[in-house]
Design a protein around this nucleic acid. Structure first.
Lengths: 348, 348
DNA sequence: CTGAAAGCGCTTACAG
DNA sequence: CTGAAAGCGCTTACAG
């Protein structure tokens, strides 16, 4: 027979005790006799008691909500990130309020400010390119590259790139074209550095920056990949799956067989990379782990815990922790050195 | 010289007036002399006053936060939706808390309940397939199909499908394969109905359900589209861009030229459809408009306004409002009837 | 036009 | 171990 939203005083009333005692029992902090505490919990449950976030927030100054600020919600990687963060936050007892830095850099500041005004306890920021998140007057955790200063969690983009580079080298590729978006991206720089290291000095690797290409040739202009194949390039390493799929379809449309004549690889394991033909070898970030660490790092700051130390709850993340990426080997990784060589001649 | 978070009483203090007056002046509701009101606003601004959401929420019972529940955050359409909702909510003065119905249907209920417990003023739900959002004890707006009962906003999927069907018919296609995911999806049913209507009775159209195909042949099994082209199919209408890209790459990998030998079209205008070669003709939902209407409809319910009526703020959304889709004509729409016929013969 | 007061639901010292 | 009281910041009748 539970009526409208029961509150602490309703529970106190039905049991003939004080609200203070109810509060103490429910929070488990105050010292309440185990017997009474149990009765209180039972009543709370049967009454369908849900603590008022507003009341608690007003009193404690905490809202139990984290902000998530992304460079651009429209980014195809956003679903993976948001899902992981939502999950991690949720199991840490936090809600997630979204913010969008879309467009200009000031938008990022605006988004952060709006979230702070909304009373979030802390913010997880994936910074816009070329942006550094300094002191924003609110606990913050950043997801970027391991080199990023501050309370940062990151994928090991460099290590991932290295793995991919090694993979391509072992397949026998000797000329690789790396397809990047913007040289301003820390993430992409790391991936390129890793790729180059993994490929080694014997493999020739160049970078084609799509942003630059778009400026000179127009956004929709073909990348001229077929000519590069003719020129001896046997592998195209996209710095994201989006780029990789673009390359793949351009090659296919030009009649170049993938992976027989040219390999195409990507990054991020977006859903697309697995449904296309041939599917893409790609590197997946461990978003669940990154999100978990980011939330943990943020919660540690909120709680005022010293960072970078082991606590009862596990290791509190210190500056620049990096999470390994996972190579998703798919068919498209393709050509053994020999096959590739053979077919390449035919096709070109 | 502004110190820690100023509150109403800080403003009242500096001006030697009461907090009630400050509150009234700032909210614009109470009758305060214009002159004093102005001074109050000035002081508030110079002090950097930001109202406490917790205090206000506790008093008014409103948090100024909307919940957004999605069937699966990992869905590639999520970015578009989330961005539009965030934008619309933000300009209506609301924050957006995300919820994820990922996985089972009960998750949807769980997500909704969690959001309610967090004190959201209302929830925007994009229901899982085969789910109906009934009375959830909290204002709600649904984004689904126009036929969905309740406080619903929707894209005109049927109309969009019809437009696409007409487009394909006018290009001269006589056999079309529709690529769907699941027959349980209302959205997809609408799109198919529209497609069929637009194609007319002279065009032969069949549906391949990918979910079914995956069950019988395995998730990664090729769809055998090349054989269908040989069989006379000249157009593949994906019910989503994801499906369309899958079809496109499968065709290309089989050596079938798109759009010369077969057309591929999609739905949703995901970013991928514009970067691939050839780019995809697709139908874009007017997410901004849908989001605006959904937020407006939800706010109307929250405010207790009668629905389906014209108010000072514009038309309050009634049951089942539908927003037109926009055809994005791209190169891939391709073959005129004649060209298509010609090439088809060659390729098959 | 302005102000004093009550109260939203909670937690936290402080008494008892 | 339990309770009375204060107060977080706000808004809203109600007086004046």
């Amino acid at each position: 027979m539970k009526s409208e939203k029961p509150n602490l005083s309703a529970i106190a009333h039905t049991l003939g005790v004080s609200v203070a005692t109810v509060s103490n029992a429910l929070s488990g902090k105050g010292r309440v006799s185990t017997e009474l505490a149990e009765r209180i919990r039972d009543t709370a449950r049967s009454l369908g008691y849900v603590p008022s976030v507003a009341g608690r927030a007003l009193r404690t100054g905490r809202t139990g909500v984290l902000g998530l600020v992304l460079p651009d919600i429209a980014n195809p990687l956003f679903p993976q990130i948001a899902q992981a963060i939502e999950q991690a936050a949720s199991s840490a007892g936090y809600g997630v309020l979204i913010g969008d830095s879309r467009g200009a850099v000031e938008q990022q500041t605006q988004a952060i400010l709006r979230l702070i005004d909304r009373g979030v306890d802390g913010i997880i920021v994936i910074p816009r390119r070329g942006t550094r998140i300094s002191d924003i007057g609110c606990p913050v955790a950043v997801i970027d590259t391991p080199a990023t200063p501050g309370n940062t969690v990151a994928s090991d983009h460099w290590g991932g790139g290295e793995e991919m580079g090694r993979h391509l080298r072992e397949l026998g590729h000797e000329r690789v074209l790396i397809l990047g978006g913007s040289p301003l991206s820390n993430v992409q720089s790391d991936r390129i550095g890793g790729l180059r290291a993994g490929l080694g000095s014997s493999v020739r690797a160049e970078v084609l920056w799509l942003e630059q290409h778009a400026e000179t040739h127009g956004a929709d202009a073909p990348l001229g990949l077929a000519a590069m194949v003719k020129d001896g390039v046997t592998a195209f390493a996209g710095l994201s799956d989006l780029t990789a799929v673009r390359a793949l379809t351009e090659l296919q449309a030009a009649g170049i067989a993938v992976p027989e004549a040219a390999s195409v690889t990507g990054f991020d394991d977006l859903i697309w990379s697995s449904v296309i033909t041939p599917s893409l070898t790609t590197l997946r970030m461990d978003m669940a782990e990154i999100a978990r660490q980011a939330v943990q790092a943020l919660v540690a700051v909120i709680a005022g815990l010293p960072q970078g130390r082991v606590t009862a709850l596990g290791t509190v993340v210190a500056d620049s922790n990096s999470v390994p990426m996972m190579l998703m080997l798919r068919q498209s990784s393709g050509p053994r050195a020999v096959d590739n060589r053979n077919v390449e001649g035919d096709e070109a």
